Simulated assay, not measured.
Amino acid sequence: MDLLIAAIVELDLFTWIGRKGPVRVADIEKEFRLNSRALDVLITYLVALGLLERGPEATVRLAPLAAEHLVAGSPWDMRAYFDVLSERPGCAEMLTALRSGRTSSWSSAPDDNRDWSDRLVDQSWARRVVASMDSRGRFLGPEFAAALDDLTGISRSLDIGGDSGVYSCALVDRRPEVRASVLERSPVDQVARELLAERGYADRVSVITGDMFAGPLPTGFDLHIYSHVLHDWSEDQVRGLLAASYAALEPGGWIVDHDAHINADKTGPLSVAEYSVTMMHGTEGKCWAVSEMDTMLTDAGFVDVRYLDVISDRSVVIARKPAS
């Protein structure tokens, strides 16, 4: 809601588009001096809300609902309703993100400039984050593992940035022949080891201490898993990770991105567009469209890219490294 309020009140975006007619997204970026990543998230969100419609050649136009209620001069103009909400701190943070692309501190506290990643060096915060991701993964994990049933030739998997290892646990439960490893930096690695031992998985799921951005990825694996990881990072960083996976994977190996994905034409679903706003606000990333993932995976050298819905607006994008 705060991002919508910023677009209505601070930018008066709908009035501008209404006067211009269909406009190129690039022209919006230039006119309002907005960050391209943040603008992409905003446009997808507004389209998913039914306020904008996408047109050919990267253009957008007003949807009837916005033309009726969010444009100056309309007899049913409701912009004043949103104006009284615009002093909320979240609106200012969203406006900053739109204009600069800078993320806000995770806590949004005025005296705290740390993002979520910076805070992971703190053991207590790391435990809270791992517990959060683990609780979600215990629900999503079995369906995630089932979505990989037709992947052949898998004996060793590497869950990159895998937190508690919950998705690796689901995988080895379904495929007992697989041995899994989780790549995590300290102190998350130690939290993961403790949880895996408590649950009786220590002999089937190991933990490798390492930073996925620091040097080559471990070799000897025929499956790389990124589960709810890539949405935290910029396009350049995601492309770097995909290239590192391509270099490290065994020939014929698989890569799986398990996440909340925007659909190929970037019109929704709304729940994922809303989640993407959260990612844009607090991380360097966003929820990637399946079409964007297809392009980045193909550019990295992967083939046979495909997409499969899983559960709770989650999906997998699967690709393969050529065998030779």
Rank of each mutant, 00 (worst) to 15 (best):
I28Y: 00
A243L: 13
I28V: 09
R175A: 11
I28N: 00
R102N: 07
P176N: 06
D294I: 04
L308Y: 01
V166P: 08
A192T: 08
W233L: 13
S312F: 10
G21C: 02
Q190N: 11
K20P: 00
R204P: 06
R199I: 09
K20E: 10
Y246V: 03
E68W: 09
W116R: 08
V25L: 06
D118P: 04
A202I: 12
L223H: 08
E184V: 06
R199L: 15
G253P: 08
S168V: 06
D159G: 06
E10V: 00
G285P: 04
E57F: 11
D309A: 11
A48M: 04
T103V: 10
D236C: 04
L52W: 01
K286N: 05
V316C: 14
R306T: 12
A197Y: 08
G240K: 05
D257S: 13
L151G: 07
M1V: 06
G200L: 11
R199C: 10
A192L: 11
A97L: 07
V207M: 07
D211F: 05
I225Y: 07
D173P: 12
G301H: 03
A197I: 12
S291A: 15
R136Q: 15
M212N: 03
L308F: 01
R19T: 02
L140R: 12
A273T: 01
A48L: 03
P22R: 09
W76Q: 10
R79W: 00
S276M: 04
D173A: 13
A145Q: 08
G141A: 11
D259N: 09
A319F: 11
D211R: 03
H231T: 10
A248S: 15
D112F: 07
G240W: 05
G215Q: 02
G285Q: 05
